[in-house]
Computed example of a mutant assay.
Amino acid sequence: MAEAILPKRKPRGVHDPQWRNAVFVAPFLLVFSSLLVLPLFWGLWLSFHKADTFSSGRFVGFDNYVRLFRDKVFLQSVWNSFYFVFLTVPALALIGLFLALALNRAGRTAAVLRTLFFSSSVLSVTIVTLIWRIVFIPGSGLVAAVWGWFGAEPPAFLSDPDLAMLAVAIATIWWCIGLPMMLFLSALQQIPRDIYEAAALDSASRWRCLTRITLPAIRRTFVLVVIIQIVLQFQLFGQAWLLTRGGPNNLTKPIVLYIYDTAFRRWDLGMGAAASQILFLLILLAAMTQYLTARRKGD
């Protein structure tokens, strides 16, 4: 009788929530919140205060942002960051696509070349900048040697106001080309070979196969590569700091280097936090604009 009185337990459905599974997700959420979410809101809170290393200071509202936009060095750093992204992102996407198309084949030679082009991506920024400082040495570097073959005066890449940012961009492209190449290779290998065989039966040229089959099939990967590179290249710091120290005349100083100088060398944490919030908005707007534009074109 007692068993008959007890209510029957409702059978659990497949899609019913099981809260005990949250135990497995909790460590990741704790680390994610501690290292990303909380610092984001802490930086936003600091940007409205006159803060230094020893105290959070007093609330000043938008005064830090007003000071930023009156600072010519900050405005120059914003322009430098956009110019650097313009130099590097298209080059990384197009060169990475070209290398992927050229090396998307079986064979030992292609495998060795893929490894060779990707190997630079595993180097630290210190090693990369050391290599390229040797390349750009005015008197005895590789560039000077190549110019000497033609009897020309080698340019001073790292001290010339017109060439310094280009030198930083060249070093960055050499360093970062591995990731776009591998993403494109992964996308190319997902395209069914039957499509190319059918195109060959119709006597389609290589150019027609590229424009009508390959590029439409990897369109989403191309958008992904561009967005990833926009986010990464807006965060330029190590190359500019180690190659040029932001010079000459602040022409290679990006926003992150400006934030470092303001917050950790001038001890103005409030203004540095305000600059970091603007950098976050710039990255978000640039990435979303690229994503929405590509999605609209695809639709």
Rank of each mutant, 00 (worst) to 15 (best):
I131V: 14
F234V: 02
A204M: 11
P155I: 13
F41E: 06
T172K: 10
F82T: 02
A169L: 05
Q189I: 03
R220E: 09
G96D: 00
R9Q: 12
L188P: 02
A111D: 10
L44Q: 02
F86C: 10
L284W: 11
F237N: 01
L185E: 01
N250M: 09
I170M: 13
T293Q: 00
M165W: 09
I137H: 12
Q235W: 02
P39K: 12
A240E: 05
L185I: 08
M288I: 11
K50G: 03
L232W: 14
L35I: 02
D194Y: 11
P248F: 09
N80P: 01
D261V: 07
C176E: 14
M182W: 03
G107E: 05
L99V: 05
L36S: 09
L97G: 09
P216A: 08
L188E: 08
L257Y: 15
A91M: 12
K8P: 00
S56T: 12
A199I: 12
D268W: 05
G43Y: 00
A171H: 03
L44H: 07
A93H: 00
L188A: 01
I170G: 06
S120L: 08
P254W: 11
W149R: 10
G270N: 04
T262G: 04
S47C: 12
Y196Q: 04
S34A: 15
L94A: 14
L29S: 05
I95T: 13
F24Q: 06
R133C: 02
G148H: 10
R9L: 13
G43E: 06
L68F: 01
F117E: 01
V128I: 03
Y65N: 00
N80S: 06
I137S: 13
F74I: 07
D52V: 01
M165N: 08
I228Y: 13
S81Y: 11
Q190H: 07
I227C: 12
A93L: 10
W241F: 12
L36Y: 13
F32E: 06
P248S: 03
A111I: 03
T244L: 13
A286N: 05
F48E: 03
S186A: 15
A274F: 05
F150W: 13
Q235F: 08
V122L: 08
G139Y: 12
S205D: 09
F234H: 00
K297C: 10
G270P: 02
F54W: 11
L75H: 08
V73P: 00
W175L: 07
S203D: 08
V225L: 01
Y291F: 15
D71H: 12
W241Q: 12
I283T: 11
S203Y: 10
F69C: 02
L242I: 06
H15V: 06
L183S: 05
A199F: 07
S121R: 11
L201F: 05
V23C: 11
A26I: 01
R20P: 02
L284T: 15
R245H: 15
A102P: 03
V125D: 12
F118V: 00
S205F: 11
L285Q: 00
Y260Q: 04
R193L: 09
R296E: 02
Q277D: 03
L99A: 06
T129C: 04
I137A: 13
R265P: 00
S120G: 01
A110C: 02
T109N: 08
F184W: 02
F59G: 01
D162W: 11
D160G: 07
F222K: 03
G96V: 03
V23H: 10
R219S: 12
A240R: 00
L281E: 07
A4T: 00
